[in-house]
Design a protein around this nucleic acid. Structure first.
Length: 274
DNA sequence: CGGGCGGCCTGGAGGC
DNA sequence: TGCCTCCAGGCCGCCC
């Protein structure tokens, strides 16, 4: 489900309601997520601890707790994290519930179980194997086209795959890679080593604009994305090419195409993207 | 080594 | 109605 904008929207919606709350208890209904959840570790490191901050790194949501621990949540493809009133019933595919002293429950629901919850020492976070290899944050202050151009040197991958490579740049998944390339007017199959400097600047600008617009509109809800309050995002109506094969391009009228790259759908306008 | 592919899961959509 | 295939917002490990 979620790329950077969705996780950021979730983070912002959660923050004002959980920071300062204490976690009374963690229920693990099903530990079999992408990686098996360590029940004891989750329980012992969350019980009675206050939530100090809600952060994000790449597509990971981070609940920073007292005692130097951080609960790491990844939504995979179909994960949701919602804040519900006390007493409400457990939902289908709700695998973990954090009971807060405010009376609310933080529910992790994930039908496909590609998601992940783990507990790390806050101080070791960046050295953990889930984080150590991660590349630049696309919304980082001062990110330039040149930074990406350097990383692309000597590589022959198609630009779309390059944008989705978390070792290079994080948070950009299938939807936003496709949309950013459309905005930048770059063909998704273009080899990344053969992109001119000026186009790198335009591409970075397009990525940042696309992500910021998506955040402002509450993210993209295709099927099941929702923020902590269960609200859908509305960036879907702003998608220019994603899932629009056969429709005319809004800019030039050419018919939008769908191709497959590395097993993932790519959509582009043959008129605007060269 | 870089890059592509299959596998991990469930469920929704569409064809017949 | 059912049964089949295909597809899905991520990520990792394996293979060439």
């Amino acid at each position: 489900m979620p790329e950077l904008p969705e996780v950021e929207v979730l983070r912002r919606s959660l923050e004002p309601h959980v920071v300062g709350s204490r976690i009374e208890k963690a229920h693990v209904w099903n530990p079999d997520l992408r990686e098996r959840l360590d029940r004891r570790r989750l329980s012992s490191s969350t019980r009675g601890r206050r939530i100090l901050a809600v952060r994000r790194r790449a597509k990971y949501l981070l609940l920073e707790l007292e005692g130097g621990r951080t609960v790491v949540v990844h939504l995979g493809m179909s994960g949701r994290l919602t804040l519900a009133p006390a007493g409400s019933d457990r939902e289908l595919h709700e695998h973990v519930t954090l009971v807060l002293d405010s009376g609310h429950r933080l529910r992790f629901r994930d039908p496909r179980r590609f998601g992940l919850i783990l507990v790390l020492r806050t101080a070791n976070l960046e050295r953990d194997r889930h984080f150590a290899h991660l590349g630049v944050e696309p919304l980082m202050e001062g990110l330039s086209g040149d930074t990406l151009r350097q990383l692309a040197r000597g590589r022959r991958a198609p630009v779309k795959s390059f944008l989705m490579d978390a070792r290079v740049i994080v948070g950009v998944g299938n939807i936003y890679a496709v949309e950013a390339l459309y905005r930048a007017g770059i063909h998704p199959t273009r080899s990344v080593g053969r992109i001119a400097s000026v186009r790198w600047d335009r591409l970075v600008g397009a990525i940042q604009e696309t992500l910021r617009d998506a955040i402002a509109q509450g993210g993209t809800t295709l099927n099941d994305f929702a923020d902590a309050a269960g609200e859908s995002g509305y960036f879907r109506v702003s998608l220019q090419v994603y899932n629009r094969q056969g429709h005319p391009c809004g800019r030039c009228g050419a018919v939008i195409r769908r191709i497959v790259q590395s097993g993932r759908s790519t959509f582009y306008c043959p008129g605007c993207q060269r």
